[in-house]
Amino acid sequence: MLKIRQPIYDEIRRHGEETYPYECCGALLGRVEGDTRTVSGSVRCRNTRTDSASDRYEIDPVEAVRIQRDARTRGLDIIGFYHSHPDHPAQWSATDLAEAHWFGCSYVITSVEKGKAALTNSFELTGTDENNKKLADEKIEVISK
């Protein structure tokens, strides 16, 4: 399960609206307890796929290095990532699965329809290696305060 406070949930959805018709992307910081990932912050990232930004995203690894370093100084960790699907369902694609390598992390996808954030879904990357990995449906619990 992914627990996320309402302001952060709203922020990642707003990010998708702001970058529409292009994909947004970012990192989710927080802590993991058992099967529950609790998000305590999000970090917007630049989509480096400027060649095909309407249907592809990529986060510059150096941004991830810096985010990981800053998170650890705050006792947090990267526990997932988010991106948007402009005018496309909030469902993972073959590309999303092929390019997912952070096992045990959440991959949150927001569909943005005509510039407005629609459905937001989360998927956990499960499995033990590249040969048996899956993006499994994951419940999102939005915490109001």
């Binding site: 249907d55 592809r56 990529e58 690894p61 990981q68 496309h88 993972w92 999303d96 390598h101």
Partner: peptide
């Protein structure tokens, strides 16, 4: 020096 191992983060539809 610090070495960081970072799996890539990408996707799309």
């Amino acid at each position: 020096d610090t070495i960081s191992i970072v799996p890539s983060i990408a996707g799309g539809y």
